[in-house]
Amino acid sequence: MKYMLLVLLLCAIRITQASEHYIILESPNFELVQDTFFSQSVDFTSLPENKVMSLTYWGNNPKVEIIYNGDNLFVSQKGNSFERVYLQFGEKIKTISFNIQTNPAIYTEEYIQLHKGTVSVETPEVYELNNIILALADKFHQANYRMYAQGEYYADVLTWFSTFKDHEIFMRLNDVDYYSFVENAVAYEFNGDQIQQSSVYKGFRVTDNVKGNISVLEDFAKKSDFKTFYKQHHSYYSTLSNTFQSGARPKDIWHWLEANFPGRPEFR
Rank of each mutant, 00 (worst) to 15 (best):
L6N: 10
L6Y: 00
L9C: 07
A12N: 14
I23E: 11
I24S: 15
L25K: 02
E26C: 07
S27N: 11
E31S: 14
V33S: 08
Q34R: 06
D35M: 04
D35W: 01
D35F: 03
D43P: 01
D43T: 05
S54P: 00
S54R: 10
L55C: 08
L55R: 03
Y57D: 08
N60P: 04
E65Q: 14
I66Y: 02
I67Q: 15
I67M: 15
L73Q: 06
L73G: 09
V75G: 09
Q77I: 13
F82K: 14
E83P: 00
E83Y: 00
E83D: 13
L87K: 03
F89G: 09
F89E: 07
I93W: 01
I93T: 08
I93G: 08
I96E: 03
S97E: 11
S97M: 05
F98P: 10
T108A: 06
E109F: 03
H115K: 05
H115L: 04
G117N: 05
V121P: 00
V126T: 02
Y127V: 11
Y127Q: 06
E128R: 12
L129N: 05
N131D: 06
I132S: 08
I132T: 13
I132Y: 05
L134T: 07
A135G: 09
A135L: 12
A137P: 03
Y148E: 07
G151V: 00
V157A: 10
L158R: 12
T163N: 15
F164E: 04
D166Y: 01
I169D: 05
F170A: 10
F170M: 10
N174K: 08
D175C: 12
V176Y: 01
A187H: 02
F190I: 03
N191W: 01
Q194D: 11
Q197W: 01
S198W: 00
V200I: 15
G203Y: 00
F204W: 00
D208R: 02
K211N: 12
I214H: 07
I214P: 09
S215A: 08
L217D: 08
F220T: 09
A221C: 08
K222Y: 02
K223Y: 01
D225H: 06
K227M: 14
Y230G: 13
H233T: 06
Y237T: 07
S238N: 11
N242Y: 02
S246F: 06
S246K: 14
G247I: 10
A248D: 08
D252N: 01
I253M: 12
L257K: 03
E258P: 00
E258W: 03
G263T: 05
F267E: 06
R268I: 13
